[in-house]
Amino acid sequence: MAQAVPAEQKWWSGGKSPFNVEYGKLMMWYFLMSDAFTFGAFLISYGTIRFSSNSWPDPNEVFQSFPGLGSGLPLMFVSLMTFILIISSVTMVLAVQAGHAMDKKAVVRNLILTIIGGIAFLSCQAWEWTHMFHEGAWWGSNPFLNIDGTKASTNFTNFFFTITGFHGFHVFSGVIINIIMLIMTLNDVFERRGHYLMIEKAGLYWHFVDLVWVFVFTVFYLV
């Protein structure tokens, strides 16, 4: 049987993980795939409805306000939100890397930054939702006209609030997870365990939230 093939690592022969990862990380990846299909279904539904409509509102007319600066500034606010999320993703990577190096201080610092980023993003979203609500937009109510000046169905706002809401819910749970990770780190749970792999999984989730935003940002605000 296993006589003369020592050169190559036999990943699949049993007794070890074929991917060299612990089961928790594997589960997290596959959970994220599953979640990707949830978001995918939402976004594809959005696309389908948009393709079934004769016209659609123009994002540059809908999203053009900035707190404190008034309106007429298309894409500005969402750019801010996007960069907040990207930066919080970066700090999360740094937290994960610090975890690998068993550098507790750096883990704590970067986790706190990530949490702040997450909260900042949620606040931006809250402002944007409130602003749109005051303009008369909500589930089942759409004050915006189509790009060609015709009356729009309510589905633009329906999808907007549903999908950004679902994304916001993910950001929110990501923040909660990160706060739990922070508390565990401060209590030296990972130090005692001898590794910070849990942070890595939280990180995967957080990056996924960022990933989804890339798609949400594009389909709602850009195209």
Binding site: Q64, S65, S71, H134, E135, G136, P143, K151
Partner: peptide, 16 residues
């Protein structure tokens, strides 16, 4: 500006 199916709100246009 058209109103949707939901309750009618007095949508104040903010130049949008």
């Amino acid at each position: 500006p058209a109103h949707g199916a939901g309750e009618t709100k007095d949508a104040k246009k903010e130049g949008s």
